[in-house]
Design a protein around this nucleic acid. Structure first.
Length: 283
DNA sequence: AGGTTGACCTGGACGC
DNA sequence: TGCGTCCAGGTCAACC
């Protein structure tokens, strides 16, 4: 479900509510599918840990954990909080993280409940079960490949596509190149850059790559400001919908007129994913 | 090697 | 109302 702007919106809401809080206990559902790490490893990493920070890496939410034990518990350890690892959440297509009061009803498809010292609960709900939970305790922490699209310079961006024969649409979705771009923002950035999704990545001109870099960063920033796109049921950590879906120019608009030239927006399938574009404005 | 396809799940929208 | 079909914001393994 969520792409970079949606995950970022969720992260911001979560950070406000849970940063500094301590995890008292963890409940994990019976079905193991959402777990990428063994359940006991997740419980061990989370329980009694303080949430030092809530970050976003691509489409992942990363909770930086530190030991909540008083320092006397490790008398000879280094000064300051002990690192405790990271809790990584990927929301898949339909996952959500919600803050709830313990007495509130547990929603269907709730796969994990994290009880916090403040009395609140952090619940992971995911009907389609494509989301994943894991923990990382190694030094260096969670470090997937790929560039953050909002952090990449135009030169770094252009280099990613050099020699790639794949359609530019597929390259944008490749998380090993750029992390965080999904189907909506791939289509929307290609429209804004005037580039057809089936163009081979390696064949884009320097000018086109520059336009695409700019368009992608613009559309992601605008979407974050709008709280993301709520296409079906996406809501942020506060349960609020985003409103960037009203700014979509092509995604989900098959057959509707292009806002610039009134041509009918086309939908095609590229590498198994639907792609939307304006046949006149995109070359 | 690198790109493409199908499988993984559930639920909502639509047509008959 | 009810049933069948198709579609979905993501990622893998398996295939060419």
């Amino acid at each position: 479900m969520p792409e970079l702007p949606e995950v970022e919106s969720i992260r911001r809401g979560l950070a406000r509510k849970v940063r500094g809080d301590v995890i008292e206990s963890v409940w994990l559902g019976e079905k193991p599918e959402p777990l990428k790490s063994p359940a006991p490893a997740i419980v061990a990493a989370l329980e009694q840990a303080r949430i030092a920070a809530v970050r976003r890496v691509g489409k992942h939410i990363v909770f930086d954990l530190e030991s909540a034990q008083p320092r006397t518990a490790v008398p000879h350890g280094p000064r300051g909080a002990q690192p405790h690892g990271q809790w990584i959440v990927h929301l898949g297509m339909t996952g959500s993280l919600v803050i709830a009061q313990p007495e509130s009803e547990v929603a269907r498809h709730t796969h994990a409940i994290v009880r916090l010292q403040s009395g609140r609960e952090l619940r992971f709900v995911d009907p389609r079960r494509f989301g994943r939970l894991s923990v990382v305790r190694e030094r260096g922490g969670f470090a997937p490949g790929g560039h953050e699209p909002l952090g990449a310079s135009v030169r770094q961006f252009a280099r990613l596509f050099r020699g790639r024969k794949t359609p530019i649409k597929s390259a944008l979705l490749n998380q090993k190149l750029l992390r965080g771009v999904g189907n909506i923002y791939a289509d929307e950035s290609l429209y804004r850059a005037g580039i057809r999704p089936r163009r081979r990545a390696s064949r884009l001109t320097g000018d086109e790559l520059g336009r695409l870099h700019r368009a992608l960063q613009q559309v992601l920033r605008q979407a974050i400001r709008a709280g993301g796109s709520s296409v079906s049921d996406y809501v942020n950590a506060e349960g609020e919908a985003g409103f960037f879906q009203f700014e979509h120019r092509v995604y989900g608009r098959e057959g509707e007129p292009c806002r610039k030239c009134r041509s009918a927006i086309k939908r095609v399938v590229i590498a198994g994913r639907s792609a939307h574009y304006c046949p006149k404005c995109q070359k």
